[in-house]
Design a protein around this nucleic acid. Structure first.
Lengths: 154, 154
DNA sequence: AATCAATTTAGAATTATTCTAAATCTTGAC
DNA sequence: GTCAAGATTTAGAATAATTCTAAATTGATT
């Protein structure tokens, strides 16, 4: 590891520690590992998929710990929970303002950026105070749309 | 039952039958009952809550049937599925364009009307074809907001 | 080094949902 | 009307996702 890489690792660790400490959580090897798993492959894995990936470098990690770690990361604002229709909850380390696009064809999940502090034209009843907007778009992704129109035109 | 009430019941039954038949489903007493349960108390019950309510007038109805009926009703466009963070799926017979407001305080779920055919300012990547937008707003509902501000100002 | 609280662990328990196979019902063909 | 075919319902088992429990471990603090 070069000096630069080393400093990078330290900085990332500080970033996680800071967030965790806002909610009274400590940085543990398990929490670090779970967070790394999410950052390394941003395909919105389920808790169980995170568990399998985390186990590769940390074979003794338990199922419950992965749930606990994900919970802590969500609570301290490092990770977002994503809910597809039924099925398991998925997790996403992208904390920019964004929503999710679900492709009905390939079942892929795509992040789509959103403007910050927007109410998206939703007219709430009197006195209702919104805290956050969750938007999920269902449809056909770019790749699948192309593939479908090709097979139609043949 | 008056003649008017009778005609009303017949009309409703026709409405359900029409929707079900678009997907090759029949109208059965169980499907009718499950749909009635949803219409009678529009509080976004879970499948299990629907089961308990349906049982009152139809004690022999089974758990699996309630799931099957809800599935059929969703597939033929009479009912919408609603997903809260984790937890059981909820069901809603309001098919107008609307989204849901979740009160973090009282845990109530409120329907909020939306304009039809709107993309809510979401900029999708090239070639992505949206089919439907699901919007969930989390925050504090009107009643809870009032209660909270009262207790602060005392 | 001793103490206290936080965290992790394995495994059990719970909750939500789906599956299975047999029984029942409905519809259309005769 | 009767029969066959297919749809639907049923009870209960199976599976999936998540949470709980209690003991062991870890880490920070005195």
């Amino acid at each position: 590891m070069t000096k630069l890489e080393f400093l990078n690792v330290v900085e990332k660790r500080n970033h996680i520690t800071e967030h965790l400490s806002t909610r009274g959580f400590r940085l543990t090897p398990q929490r670090q590992r779970v967070y790394d798993v999410l950052v390394q492959k941003r395909d919105h894995p389920t808790a169980d998929e995170v568990f399998v990936r985390a186990k590769k470098q940390m074979p003794e990690i338990s199922h419950a710990t992965v749930y606990n770690c994900l919970d802590a990361l969500v609570k301290c604002g490092l990770v977002r929970q994503v809910q597809l229709d039924r099925g398991a909850t998925r997790f996403c380390p992208n904390m920019h303002e964004h929503c999710h696009f679900y492709c009905d064809e390939c079942e892929g999940i795509f992040d789509v950026d959103l403007p910050a502090d927007e109410t998206f034209g939703v007219q709430l009843p009197k006195n209702f105070k919104p805290a956050r907007f969750e938007i999920a778009v269902h449809g056909i992704c770019g790749e699948c749309a192309k593939r479908k129109s090709n097979s139609l035109n043949r």
